[in-house]
Amino acid sequence: MFRLVAVRLFFGLLTLWAVSVAVFAATQALPGDAALMILGRDATEARVAALREQLHLDQPLVVQYAQWLQGVVRGDLGISYSNRSPVTEVLNGPIGASLTLMGLAALAAAPLALAVGAFSALRRDRAFDHTASLGTLVTAAVPEFVVGILLILALGPGGLDLFPSVYSRNGGPEQWVLPVLTLAFAVAPPIVRMMRATMIEVLESEYVQQARLKGLDERTVLVRHALPNAVGPVAQVVALQLAWLAGGVVAVEFLFNFPGIGKVLMDAIENRDVPLVQAVVLLIAGVYILVNLAADVIGLAANPKVRVTR
């Protein structure tokens, strides 16, 4: 068990490293001289040369990579081309905003999804179960930005006009509603499904059957015996969904003009801001890998047999 976790951890780190190589290599393929990009159009030759040296651009790629990785480990991700301040500074606010958005979405989605999933299991093959399963199939299929647009057209200025459809710095809390709702719709279905499957499995298990045979009432069986056993796999799915959120926020933030890392990424791509692109991709991939890792470990801890593919 401990060995398995250690192996996972090792491969997780290896993967992180591989991703860093991939990100570095990929962004090196971008045209344009970094020094020139940073200094902008009013760069003089002397200043460009000085900056090139400072950025180690005159060194071989391997050395550049080593320097860059060293920086990454130290938390120094370079200077953003477009606003010429340290990448970490640029990312500070957006990371917080994205985390808040994801947190709120998870908070909104998880309890309801868990309840629906558990209830579906209890009412297996009855109307509620069928409706819920159809509902998850439908919401799971539709891309999140499509859900977002439909929400805007229904609840936003296109329809009932209850909530604004774009985020603005001086807007009120109501501008969080639509982005959070969109993300919540996107993360809920797998949680519902996993909760249902796990609960069915648990309810059918000998363990629960025995509890029933002992004459315990259904409620106690459910709360004392069934639910705790469902925690492991469900936690895993919730974790995986959170990891998915890290990537999924991009389109949602783009749609709602929400100032998080996803929007930073799209802007950075637009401006060919290499250090910023590197940092955001690395960040999202890192979160994704770490959460996957955590999910794996949780899964192993809860039940070595359960593995979830995504």
Binding site: P164, S165, V166, Y167, S168, R169, N170, G171, N257
Partner: peptide, 18 residues
């Protein structure tokens, strides 16, 4: 004087009276 890099946000701000 308030910065509004985004078009929609700027129009919204006027609409809402901010």
């Amino acid at each position: 004087i308030v910065d509004f890099p985004d078009d929609d946000a700027r129009v919204n701000a006027l609409n809402s009276g901010s």
